[in-house]
Amino acid sequence: MSAQGEEKPAPVLQLEGVSKSFGGVRAARDVSFSVAPGHIHAVIGPNGAGKTTLFNIITGVYAPDSGRIRFEGADVGGRPVHRRVAMGIARTFQNVELFSGMSVLENVMVGLHVRTRCGFLGAIARPPWVKREEKLARETALDWLRFVGMEKVAETPAGDLPFGWQRLVEIARSLASRPRLLLLDEPAAGLNARETRDLGALLKRIRAQGVTLLLVEHDMSLTMEISDRIMVLDQGVKIAEGTPREVQADKKVLSAYLGG
């Protein structure tokens, strides 16, 4: 694995021999890798390499056929999606999945779901602690909108925003759950050059908050610039892993991309 002699802190995320097939298609074959805390870790690979499948396995949408997933040392294998969010794994979607009819602020407030606790009876009785929680949730959501620069559209229905802005709102929503690991599925897809540059800066600011990032990305210049480590997948198999420089020099990677 990593040959460098640096001391290694305990990984945030660790996959051990994870495999998953759909019918005859093997979307992940014995994938093992680990993500160090505070890193921006990218997963790249040609279309159909199994990147999104890997995300769905890590977040709990799919159960792997075999293998283990550890988050901060704990095996999260059998836990449902929402439990993993509560543990500190958040994600965004390739095609941005906002709650389109709800306001931008409400979207981010739903992101606070696992950090708040008012239930059905609490909502009906509305005791003082629920009012306080509600107020705090509103303020916190606004803080996260400010963090991504979207506070001015807080009251706008999320579906009315331009695509690039929706993406930022989705990031704010995922951050609201206070994750320690954030999975971003092609965050730069559909963004123009300027927006992509801003996104790179935002991702670094998120890392500075102590959040470890795992991203799937097609925009190579962005990936190479911001990533601490890159893993390359091809047809469900990990074919390379290393720093951006190492990966760029790797022959197997070149042939996978150029179809050699």
Binding site: T59, V61, P80, V81, H82, V85, A86, A90, R91, F93, E97, L98, F99, S100, G101, M102, E106, M109, V110, G111, L112, H113, V114, T116, R117, C118, G119, F120, G122, A123, I124, R126, V130, E133, E134, A137, R173, S174, A176, S177
Partner: peptide, 26 residues
Amino acid sequence: RIVHSRVGRALSAIHFSEQAAAAVGV
């Protein structure tokens, strides 16, 4: 009161995208 609460927002979220609602922890 339910509609304008954490519970109500979660229900609305399910209405718009159940997958995304689960992905943010509902």
